Amino acid sequence: CHLVFKDAGTPWRRARPAIAALLKPDLFREGCDGEAVDWACERLGARAEERKLLLVMSDGSPMDSATNLANDAHYLDHHLQDVVARHEQAGRIGIAGVGVGLDLSPYYSRSHVLDLAAAGGAAMFLELIGLLAGFHRR
């Protein structure tokens, strides 16, 4: 199941109802983070823009019951690390991870922990802008 809350071609104003779905906790029981990053990079790679950045917001817990039953406990973690490393090495897309209360540095070379309890709305956006500002044109 791939959920797109806002694609690059949709204005923020029109995407607000879809983005509000992020507040529904029952949507996020399971998620193959590596597969989602791979899929998002494929979609971004097909776009015409010269500069491409992927901002991944995550709870840092790749989880899929069927995959965990068939593989070792860290299979999805390793898969995410491999996928991110592959795309970062290719250099076509800048990837940054934003951990919702969790450090994502084991997965993403550029990451930031977002403390929802401490940061107010404007402060949160300034933190994210600071993270994205670290990407420079090549």
Rank of each mutant, 00 (worst) to 15 (best):
N68D: 09
D64K: 05
P11A: 09
A20K: 09
P17R: 09
E88V: 06
V56T: 04
A40E: 01
L55T: 04
V56K: 00
V56G: 01
A118M: 13
E127T: 04
A48Y: 08
A123C: 08
S65I: 08
P62S: 07
G130K: 08
L104W: 00
A118V: 13
A119Y: 10
E35P: 04
L69G: 04
L3W: 12
W39C: 04
R29E: 15
H2V: 15
L69Y: 03
E49P: 03
R110I: 07
Q81P: 06
L22G: 06
A21F: 15
D33T: 03
I93K: 00
R16N: 11
G99Q: 00
A117W: 15
G60H: 10
A85G: 06
I95L: 01
S109K: 07
Y75T: 02
A15L: 11
D26E: 15
A46N: 12
L114I: 03
A96G: 09
V100L: 14
L128H: 13
G120R: 09
I93M: 02
Y108F: 00
A8L: 13
E42I: 04
P106I: 03
D103P: 04
R43F: 03
A122K: 11
G91M: 10
A66N: 09
K24Y: 15
G9I: 02
G97V: 01
F5W: 08
R86N: 07
F125D: 13
F125H: 14
S58T: 06
A118G: 11
G60T: 06
M57S: 08
I93P: 00
F5V: 10
W12K: 09
I19W: 02
Y108P: 00
G99P: 00
G101I: 13
D77L: 09
S61Y: 12
G91R: 11
M124Q: 12
E42N: 02
H78S: 08
D7C: 13
K6V: 08
D26L: 14
T10E: 14
F5H: 13
D103H: 08
V56I: 11
E42H: 05
P25V: 11
V98L: 07
L131Q: 05
Q89F: 14
D33I: 10
L76N: 01
G134R: 11
D26F: 15
G134E: 10
T67V: 07
G91W: 09
L54R: 00
L80Y: 03
L102T: 13
H74A: 05
L80S: 05
Y107P: 02
W12E: 12
E30G: 12
K52W: 01
Q89H: 15
A66P: 02
R43T: 02
S109C: 09
F5Y: 13
L131T: 04
D7F: 08
H78A: 11
L102H: 13
L22P: 05
S111T: 03
A36I: 06
H2F: 14
S111P: 01
H112V: 05
S105Q: 06
N71K: 06
E50F: 11
V98N: 01
Q81E: 14
R86E: 09
G34P: 04
G60N: 08
T67G: 01
A40N: 01
V37L: 01
L3G: 08
I95R: 00
L76S: 02
S65W: 06
L54A: 00
A133M: 10
S105F: 02
G45L: 06
H74S: 05
Y75G: 01
G91Y: 11
K24L: 14
L53Y: 03
S65L: 13
